[in-house]
């Protein structure tokens, strides 16, 4: 079963992302939730995760640092990372690309936006994994 880790300090935002993915037919995935970057890192070092979806602005450890930590780690840098943000900010976008983000998605998230990103990154058959 595919494991998707959703990281956001807002439980609502995490549920919105999960619901969007579920209505796409990816409901067989296991969804893991983390409220900040530290909690997300604790999960990914302990178990295999197929995708991380993270917000940027979070307490304790923000999405920038989480992305950077994932992408510089030889053990973790194979995990695709989607960053979701309400801030349409060219400087931030450039920074995320430099850090190795796989997708930058602007809020509000919607099933079509996520479907395109999921299929392009994980493949169309991935939902059956």
């Amino acid at each position: 079963m595919a494991k998707l880790l959703i990281t956001d300090d807002s439980a609502t935002a995490r549920m919105i992302i999960q619901r969007c993915i579920e209505v796409l037919g990816w409901d067989k995935c296991e969804f893991l939730h983390a409220a900040d970057g530290v909690a997300a890192l604790e999960i990914v070092v302990k178990q295999q995760v197929d995708l991380i979806i993270t917000d940027i602005v979070m307490p304790v450890m923000d999405g920038r640092v989480l992305l950077k930590r994932i992408k510089v780690s030889p053990k973790l840098n194979h995990i695709p990372v989607f960053v979701i943000s309400s801030l349409a900010n060219p400087a931030m976008e450039k920074e995320m690309i430099q850090f190795g983000v796989d997708r930058l998605i602007y809020k509000p998230v919607s099933p079509p936006k996520l479907l395109e990103a999921l299929e392009a990154t994980l493949g169309k058959d991935f939902r059956e994994k």
């Binding site: 807002s10 609502t12 935002a13 943000s85 309400s86 801030l87 349409a88 602007y106 809020k107 509000p108």
Partner: peptide, 17 residues
């Protein structure tokens, strides 16, 4: 209240964008 905060954050991001 978390839902309301998320709603406002998303909406303000769209307004400014």
């Amino acid at each position: 209240l978390d839902n309301l905060g998320e709603l406002m954050n998303t909406m303000c991001g769209r307004i400014l964008a």
